[in-house]
Design a protein around this nucleic acid. Structure first.
Lengths: 347, 347
DNA sequence: CCATAAAGCTAAACCCATTTAGTAAAAATG
DNA sequence: CATTTTTACTAAATGGGTTTAGCTTTATGG
């Protein structure tokens, strides 16, 4: 149980061979460098015996590769991101990559700081949910850098950067169509006051629906960042009270839906009798809740799989030959109780 | 916008000074090494101009410090862990530390593999939820290592290792006492079939209560690892049907409670009229649900704060002088609708 | 004016690996 | 037997820092 630090040098000395030889053996380059089988065995045996394995740090310093991919999202405690994180981690692990997570808090400053830190750690690639207010130029610059960057969940319309996102427009449209099929006409839309692409796209579906039907939109934009605070509840309460004619609401995020349903409960609005509800992005709670909540489901496994496969592909392609990969996946509707219009019920 | 790599060497050359001098200036050791103010200014100005900042990698290699703390939990997508992770991250960031997260999947092999990887990355400390079946000897060994390790959420009874946990016994007891105060007598206990310390301690409170009251325990141990699968639902269903006399159930985890309540819903068991419910560990869902669910709340902020402050304290203490820190925090009851026995209701 | 001290700076070793460009010896070739 | 090829292995540069020990030069003291 000797605590002495192992190193290639020490091994080389112990075995009376050169550092180079040991390194070759360790990296499977012994054969191509004509190291004799006898010596290979000797080195391998000793390395195994002392339980040595090389310092990634030194390795990274030398090679410029770290086998680390960073996953930077708005908030790692958000179940959606956490789930994707887990899936990515498992996938990457198989390919010998480690994942470092980090939360951007949607703060461009913090994000840039973190990217700098990671740049410096020589991470091999970045997966990022770009925060609001992030300078597109920086993203552009970063994405042309030696280490690939993939945007995720949302993209920046003006920047040519690889991304994996879902078709938010189609996703929202499917939900809205379901309302219409169920005979619901007075549909409201609750979203965040944010200009992130995914939010815009979801709202676009609603706006388009309104235009097609020739009705005027009833949109609530909850102040961004406040959605766990009282402001959100107040905004929602006001919205419900001022729009009593509504019989269905599409919530652009699951958090908003939960907040909204809580407020409805306080106001005595029954779901789905008084008000049908669909939320964008599924959630554990939705299937436990009474009533169960219809939601737009993002294909998490597919997203994770595409993220990691795209990342590896980019990493293994020379910078010059890299092409911008734009991957758009389809969401689906998970129909549950909350979106059903029950004919002949109250209201 | 030159892409040329910056390095201390390059700077030294450019300014016609030695590498040493630049290093001293960068590390604030210029004064104590009698570098003239003039030169200090010159170096600092240039460094700022080219936007240089040193490679952590090289730094770590040399100093053996990385300013990284690893946070390894069973499953980072579990909201409890994710929330703690976020809190820790924010706290650590202020002190100049970065956090790397990782999931152990409760797999001792994977855990050891990860620890090895991190050891190698020269991380400064470990925060770990030890997986079931983890060799206590290894933990013991690791905790005596140069880099501190803090166990969290659960501990290993036989190992002298620093930890931050909550008083699971008292927490569970408070919930059970609440049942008793509300006049509920036939109390069941649903837990995981796991010998993790936190689970044992929760159950201990129940067993003790039964003994005090002189009643026979009615415990369901849901197979571990299956709690998102059908097995769990089946087990729960059987338990409810075979114990119709129960009028209250304490769930040892929030997940079990959600699953349990779903099954009750299917069986037509009304909460709290037919069955009162308390869950260990609060959850977003519990305050949205109908009825809202009473739960034992873990002081997450406090846990995170203690974890980080203890870690920093250990890091900044010489190995020889380090003492094992055992921190036990108190949980509290968040009383909501599900635990009330409504007199005169059905049953 | 010489010895000593202080000021101001730097050479070089070290952390731990990878990799290029060799070298020495053995085997093959003419 | 001399030359070329192959085999088997290694020295040394490199990546980007930190830090110890030491070297000039100038100031101080007797």
């Amino acid at each position: 149980m000797q605590k002495k630090k192992h190193s290639i040098k020490a091994i080389a000395k112990e075995l009376n061979v050169s550092v180079t030889t040991v390194s070759f053996v360790l990296n499977g380059k012994a054969e191509e460098n004509r190291i004799s089988q006898k010596l290979i065995d000797k080195v391998q045996a000793y390395v195994k015996e002392i339980g040595y394995y090389p310092s990634q740090l030194a390795k990274s310093l030398r090679t410029g590769k770290s086998n680390i991919i960073v996953f930077m999202v708005e908030d790692i405690s958000n179940p959606f991101f956490a789930t994707i994180a887990k899936l990515i981690e498992d996938q990457a692990f198989k390919d010998g990559y480690k994942i470092i997570y980090s939360s951007t808090n949607n703060d461009p400053e913090k994000t840039m700081g973190l990217i700098r830190v990671f740049k410096d750690l020589q991470v091999d690639g970045y997966i990022l949910t770009p925060p609001v207010g992030m300078d597109p130029k920086l993203i552009k610059e970063l994405s042309n850098d030696r280490n690939p960057m993939i945007l995720f969940d949302r993209y920046l319309p003006d920047v040519e950067c690889s991304h994996v996102v879902i078709d938010n427009f189609q996703g929202a449209k499917q939900g809205l169509d379901l309302f219409l099929e169920n005979g619901l006409k007075e549909i409201g839309f609750v979203t965040l006051d944010s200009n992130q692409s995914q939010m815009q796209d979801r709202k676009e579906a609603y706006d388009q629906m309104c235009e097609t039907l020739g009705i005027s939109p009833k949109v609530l934009k909850v102040p961004f960042g406040s959605y766990s605070s009282l402001d959100a509840a107040k905004a929602l309460k006001g919205y419900f009270l001022n729009n009593k004619e509504l019989d269905a609401i599409f919530f652009a995020t699951n958090y908003l839906a939960m907040k909204g349903m809580q407020v409805m409960k306080e106001l005595g609005i029954k779901i789905p009798e008084d008000m049908a509800v669909i939320a964008f992005d599924d959630n554990e709670f939705f299937k436990f809740n009474t009533p169960t909540v219809t939601s737009i489901v993002q294909p998490k496994e597919e997203i994770a799989q595409k993220l990691i496969s795209t990342m590896l592909e980019l990493i293994n392609t020379d910078v010059e030959e890299r092409k911008v990969k734009k991957i758009v996946l389809q969401a689906s509707v998970n129909e549950r109780e909350s979106s059903k219009k029950k004919v002949g019920m109250s209201k």
